[in-house]
Design a protein around this nucleic acid. Structure first.
Length: 500
RNA sequence: GGGCCGGUAGCUCAGGGGUAGAGCAGCAGACUUUUAAUCUGCGGGCCGUGGGUUCGAUUCCCACCCGGCUCACCA
């Protein structure tokens, strides 16, 4: 029989001593007149004389983060998660039992206290306790007060500990909430309808990625967790909902990295009678507004850079950008037709040292070259537009150039934040694109798009011209909170379970 | 999946082939305005797991587990 670790046994002993005093260890409620944050916010700036004059009585509660005991007097620091407040307990100011309770407290316990606000000799804003109520026991020792919780694995696995001791972590998730609210406010103000579409789909479409597979017993059918909501949102355009958006989780069965979590939050919005050029302007307005609401300004610090979300953003057409950078690196003029011809594109990739697969066509090769040459240097918000049709099975072609689609991606901080295009609404062309994807799938590309007859049927009923966009919300929050890893902006990122 | 780095007390971290170290936290005592409280004393460890080398391994070697960064795939 393993012995209970000493630190846990000591806390349990304190709890049992409280029980012997007749203390309710887990009372059902506690009525506060103020939260700690309200007390600090409302009265924390009052001078000592003002507090003496006003004699403000208050009842508040929180978790104990520090105990400084002087025998017949005890200072507690309690927190409501937002702010911290010192509570002064002295034997001659409290009922006898309350002081006995105070002596049995451990760091991390929850308590409530009533008393009068004052300032100590050292000018600390403090509640002079006249009663103390035990509210909940913390049976496990918390991380240290001074260094906080550094172990990144525990921060992710036991996020509650991170939130208790690392105020910066809490701020990140407050900023995340503010980001979602700001995105919704922006779209709501423009007449968008927020909708929810299936997360479990018969066919995982709308993006190019490997899906998670599950099974429904009653219907005895295979189901996929969605990799994107796109094709359902566009069915709603067919249904006459002219402006729709969805903020929800996507699931992709791919690698995990500082920029990838298997489940991640995506905003997708679609606007009838719009196109990718309008969406660029709208994206600039949206991100500017969101940045101001979340961080207080259009400029944000990210990984040592100052990113400016003040419009307009730089705009780079993909093939000309590839030619420009390739010319610079190769020391000879590279022409756009080299990006459109398979043999020339292969040669170009080889010359630039960009790895490619035999099955890739010139469009895919061009996109690969672009990412290799440009992505790391796209720190300031930048629109990359006019993608090869080959890599964009759901986008509408340019009227003057069928090899190019009206599509852009927004880069910031060195990675992709958004993807948008004029939506392909011609069912016959959509069928041809799916068929092209099927050929790529047969060529070994697991992520090529599947044929979706039901979606084509929807298009056959007529979809108005429209623009649509997806924004990686986690990545946006990363940029707005200067977080290096996507795991820092997801409360419970996926971790391999611990053994035993 | 490949490469590099890490895992030692509740937390933050040193250390190193021969009894395991510090600070904070904890326990006992003193102290009725402290605030990283202070002072005195005391506990606390499967040194990630399993093998191997060795008289002896927490230390060296191998494998594995968990994590971080990075590359590849992707958003």
């Amino acid at each position: 029989m393993p012995q209970e670790p000493e630190l846990l046994a000591q806390r349990r002993a304190n709890m049992e001593a409280l029980a012997r005093l007749g203390v309710d260890l887990y009372p059902h409620e506690f009525a506060r007149t103020h939260t700690v944050d309200e007390l600090v916010g409302t009265f924390g700036a009052r001078s000592r004389d003002e507090l003496e004059l006003e004699r403000i009585e208050a009842t508040t509660a929180g978790r104990i983060l520090a105990i400084r005991s002087f025998g017949k007097a005890i200072f507690l620091v309690i927190s409501d998660g937002r702010s911290r407040l010192q509570v002064y307990l002295r034997q001659d100011s409290l009922p006898e039992r309350d002081f006995q309770v105070a002596r049995l407290l451990d760091l991390g316990d929850f308590v409530g206290a009533s008393g009068r606000l004052f300032r100590t000799r050292t000018d600390e804003f403090t509640l002079w306790g006249s009663s103390l109520t035990f509210l909940a026991k913390c049976l496990v020792p918390l991380p240290e007060k001074w260094h906080g919780l550094q172990d990144i694995e525990i921060r992710y696995r036991q996020r509650y500990l991170d939130l208790i001791v690392n105020p910066d972590s809490r701020r990140v998730f407050e900023a995340r909430s503010a980001t979602l609210a700001a995105l919704r406010a922006f779209l709501d103000a423009r007449g968008y309808l927020e909708v929810e579409t299936p997360m479990m789909q018969v066919l995982a479409g709308g993006a190019l990625a490997r899906p998670f597979v599950t099974h429904h017993f009653a219907l005895d059918m295979k189901l996929y967790l969605r990799i994107a909501p796109e094709l359902y949102l566009k069915r709603l355009l067919v249904g006459g909902l002219e402006r729709v958006y969805e903020i929800n989780r996507n699931f992709r069965n791919e690698g995990i990295s500082t920029q990838h979590n298997p489940e991640f939050t995506m905003l997708e919005f679609y606007q009838s009678y719009s196109n990718y050029l309008e969406l660029m302007d709208m994206t600039e307005q949206m991100l500017s507004e969101v940045a101001v609401k979340v961080t207080g300004g259009e400029e944000v610090g990210f990984c040592g850079h100052r990113l400016s979300f003040r419009p307009p953003y730089r705009r780079l057409a993909m093939r000309p950008a590839v030619c420009e950078e390739a010319s610079r690196r190769l020391g000879r003029p590279v022409e756009e037709r080299e990006c459109r011809d398979l043999k020339a594109a292969r040669a170009l990739a080889r010359a630039l040292g960009v790895p490619i697969e035999p099955a890739m066509g010139p469009g895919k090769i061009t996109a690969e070259i672009f990412e290799a040459l440009w992505e790391p240097q796209l720190i300031q918000p930048t629109f990359v537009y006019d993608f090869p049709t080959e890599v964009s099975p759901l986008s509408k072609q340019r009227p003057d150039d069928p090899d190019t689609v009206e599509r852009f991606e927004l880069y910031a901080g060195g990675f992709e934040l958004a993807n948008a295009f004029s939506e392909l609404n011609d069912p016959a062309e959509q069928r041809r694109r799916f068929e092209q994807q099927l050929r790529q799938r047969e060529g070994g590309d697991e992520e090529a798009h599947q044929m979706d007859e039901d979606y084509i049927l929807a298009l056959e009923h007529g979809m108005p011209p429209a623009g649509g966009e997806g924004i990686g919300v986690d990545r946006l929050v990363m940029v707005l909170t200067d977080s290096r890893s996507i795991r820092d902006v997801i409360l419970f990122p996926l971790m391999r379970p611990r053994k035993e």
